[in-house]
Design a protein around this nucleic acid. Structure first.
Lengths: 332, 332
DNA sequence: TTGTATGCGTTATCAC
DNA sequence: GTGATAACGCATACAA
């Protein structure tokens, strides 16, 4: 592979001059520039970005840590990030954290060792303290889907409580008064926020919150089915079921079908996240839109602005969810 | 950040010795090793992988080019790749090609410039010639989901024709004789192979292939709906519909529901790919399993073996699809 | 076993 | 406007 040195020899200029025409930061006379460009062309020269990084202390890469690489949610997020970064010639290094503390920490260290210029983290298992300490380090970080007061400017998050509120409100507004709820794992912050929104809506409606109508799921389809079965067998009545994510809603719908419980005439269901699946199942799932792709874009833009000083970009930290009306809720 | 130099000073040894204890390739006395390790610990030393790469001419990173970052298919693939590579401390740099020739080429150059040790490519738009020429370069490449005779040892692919054959055979075996087919875009190689398998099965069954029963879709849900509608409006009868991928099958099922055509009693449907969606829709979609996650693993293993000389790993180039029986086919 | 010296391909700070 | 030359942080051939 041709190096900058080869180019300089062929062009009959110094090594520094070649570097200059590449980086366009210093004036170079037109004719020497042409000589250099021609030499590059002839040699098929491609800069070695590793060497560039070492010398400039900039890797032009941003590390992204997600829980899983598969799944519709993270796909949309990474797609948003990549699209935004690509236009600025930055690139993405990915790692998976698997929602496990040790694994998440390893992933983060891994990315820092690669000298990423900044990190976009979607982490669930590490503590706030760890992240706060991390943010004091040399590598800027932006948090997606997590809100930490001390780090609020670098958090891109959804108002999960509002989402839980809106989901519940959608049921209340259509006349439902007996509401069941399938939540995510209790330790997750978004689980807590969504449930808090649920309670808030119930309170505002003058109803009383009944823990017997809540089932703790796992954000997986199976948890949804299980939750539906458990709730049906319990001695509680409900006409509406709020699921903390779409996958559990799909599982619940499946369980309902097996029990011959018609959706939505017998039980109305609403999901959360608006993953692509929601539009495919039958009846099409009414859900809460989680603009994760847009949030990925925003996280990338945050980095473009704060780490690469690109432009005076507008940053929006908090995103608001909205109800996507489809066919899984019926009036009562 | 502490450098190898800082460590050497604190440990009272030479710079080279520190490097040695890191790379474990040369013998170092136990006590000096301990001195070094302690110094590293004390300084919180983390090797600069950029500098390592420059000096060793190894980036320990493999570039992955996929068409899209979102979507269940690529997610599963990347997940397989990352899992396999992570265990060997290699990392993944991703780029998206968007099924566009120019974009795919840019992505590839981008990854090569980053001095990836090897590339895993899922490309559709670039020509065989381009890839053959590329393979002669310094960076090893492995192709996923593409078969090029000249490059066969570095291709990890599915027997798409067999898949098309099996899908059709599944219909024939349950008594169907009037088969409609919704294909992908004609220019794609997997489209062609799947259709070829379809024709082969028809031929073997002693039936005649009727182009009027084939609709060219786009591998998207909308293409499936459109295809179903077009086929229904045409003056052709069919009791079975073979879709070249699951998304189109889902679209077709949706169109069928709107036309009050019951699946599978009136029309049986089979998909292709076995994306996660197939298990969520109703009726659960019978389809052809595409072990893309496993193939991602294998591609990564190929690189571990050929580029990093890791172990005597077994490489399987061709994967065979299999029918996943669910609920969208009924006997006739 | 350990140390010295050189190179990897750039960028950047000086001079001129 | 252009050219030397010193970093950048590490690996490694060669000595000792």
């Amino acid at each position: 592979m041709a190096t900058i040195y080869d180019v300089s020899v062929l062009a009959g200029v110094s090594l520094a001059t070649v570097s200059r025409v590449m980086n366009k930061n210093t004036k170079v006379s037109e004719k020497t520039e042409k000589k250099v460009l021609d030499a590059m062309e002839e040699l098929g020269y491609r800069p070695n970005s590793i060497a560039q990084s070492l010398a400039s202390n900039r890797s032009n890469s941003v590390g992204v840590l997600v829980s899983e690489l598969h799944g519709p949610f993270y796909g949309a997020m990474m797609s948003g990030i990549e699209a935004e970064l690509r236009t600025s010639k930055k690139h993405v290094i990915i790692a998976a954290g698997h929602s496990d503390e040790q694994s998440e920490k390893e992933g983060i260290e891994f990315l820092i060792d690669r000298r990423c210029d900044a990190l976009i983290l979607h982490v669930e298992a590490v503590s706030d303290e760890y992240l706060i300490k991390l943010s004091k380090g040399a590598t800027p970080i932006v948090l997606i889907n997590r809100y930490i007061p001390e780090l609020k400017d670098s958090c891109i998050y959804l108002d999960n409580q509002l989402g839980g509120y809106l989901a519940t409100k959608a049921m209340l507004d259509t006349g439902h008064k007996e509401l069941a709820y399938i939540s995510g794992p209790a330790w997750k912050v978004d689980t807590q926020a969504r449930l808090a929104g649920h309670k808030q809506a119930i309170r505002e409606a003058g109803l009383t919150y009944n823990p017997a109508l809540v089932f703790e799921g796992d954000y997986l389809e199976t948890g949804g089915s299980e939750g539906f079965n458990v709730l049906m067998q319990a001695k509680v009545n409900f006409t509406a079921l709020i699921c903390a994510n779409d996958e559990m809603a799909a599982g619940a719908m499946d369980a309902a079908r097996q029990m011959q419980v018609d959706i939505p005439s017998k039980v109305s269901i609403i999901g959360f996240d608006n993953i692509i699946l929601a539009n495919y199942i039958h009846p099409k799932l009414t859900t809460i839109d989680y603009p994760i792709g847009e949030m990925g874009h925003m996280a990338a833009r945050w980095i473009l602005k704060n780490t690469y000083q690109n432009k005076p970009l507008e940053i929006k930290n908090m995103f608001e969810p909205a109800v996507v009306h489809r066919d899984s809720i019926s009036k009562i």
